[in-house]
């Protein structure tokens, strides 16, 4: 599940600390570079905690652990979901009081491989950011755990971290969709049934054209979200639109890629099934299309015509 060798290689290339300050061990680059790396990981079908690292690194702020995150010597993962609760960027049942934390985080991504976890807790009206040692399983019960408080009022940091994480996920989804489409097109050209290539059947090629359309539209939205975060790391609207578009397109392209492959598409042996699985996981990380659409819907009455160039 976690490939330590691959992770070291990604660290050596400087990709893990890409958007973080050079004085903390990062590369001092930005969201556009994160997007480029993440989309290539998606295209190659590399499964790694890259988006998680972008979130964790942002949550760490100027903590010394950031250096270890950047050079790959420590795997730090965010734990932001609560069992039995739909996605919420802010903590609900995890509470910090009198210097002790309580509540449960689950599932914690890459828990078995992780060295440290960064999580959040409700502290009065504020959101605190905490660091703890990684749990052995994917459930993190904070009761009685030794914690370090990284920030007492960290809501803005949390939202910014999730923005960057969603950008990385959206870009990864784009890369995965590029590959899913390429595999599908190749299969339609080479697979023969009834004595002819599948590309002879318009009922299939028309659907491949719709897949292409979804991919290209997503590409535009991913690029724009990267530019938007580069201009304003707090731009939640561009990020919500990205999550909606990438979520819908990921379902469409992933499902169609499997369907147009036929039986081979649902085997573990063939790459396309892994791409659909990954696109499904991405859709349900940091809020799905429904969650982000509902947030956008609550503000549609606040303005008239859409203006992306404002």
């Amino acid at each position: 599940m976690f490939d330590a060798k691959l992770w070291r290689a990604l660290a050596e290339m400087g990709t893990l600390g890409l958007p973080f300050p050079e004085e903390a061990g990062g590369m001092g680059a930005g969201p556009v570079e994160v997007m480029i790396v993440a989309s290539e990981l998606g295209r190659a079908g590399v499964r790694s905690p890259y988006a998680e690292t972008m979130v964790a690194g942002t949550l760490l702020g100027d903590d010394a652990l950031l250096g270890s995150l950047c050079d790959g010597s420590a795997l730090v993962v965010p734990a932001l979901t609560e069992p039995g609760r739909a996605w919420s960027p802010l903590p609900v049942g995890v509470v910090l009081s009198g210097g002790a934390a309580s509540g449960v985080r689950a599932p914690v991504p890459y828990a078995a491989a992780a060295d440290h976890v960064v999580t959040t807790a409700r502290a009065g009206d504020s959101t605190a950011i905490l660091a703890v040692d990684a749990p052995v399983s994917s459930t993190l019960d904070l009761a009685g755990k030794a914690i370090r408080v990284l920030a007492e009022d960290g809501e803005a940091t949390v939202r910014r971290a999730i923005n960057l994480g969603i950008l990385a996920l959206g870009a990864e989804a784009l890369g995965a969709m590029d590959t899913a489409l390429a595999l599908t097109v190749d299969y339609l050209k080479t697979r023969k049934q009834f004595g002819v290539p599948l590309a002879r059947f318009q009922t299939l090629t028309q659907r491949a054209a719709d897949m292409y359309t979804s991919v290209e539209l997503t590409r535009s939205v991913v690029y724009f979200a990267a530019m938007s975060l580069a201009a304003d790391p707090d731009d939640e609207v561009a990020i919500a639109r990205l999550k909606v578009s990438a979520g819908k397109a990921g379902r469409h392209v992933g499902q169609e890629a499997v369907q147009l492959h036929g039986g081979i598409g649902v085997t573990a042996e063939y790459a396309v099934s892994h791409l659909l699985a990954r696109l499904t996981a991405i859709e349900h990380t940091y809020g799905d299309a429904r969650y982000h659409l509902a947030r956008l819907a609550r503000r549609v009455g606040d303005y008239g015509a859409l203006d992306l160039m404002a």
Partner: peptide
């Protein structure tokens, strides 16, 4: 909101 997402993707 969904149409605005679609429209934004088209415009971009």
């Amino acid at each position: 909101a969904e149409l605005e997402c679609d429209l934004a993707a088209l415009e971009l």
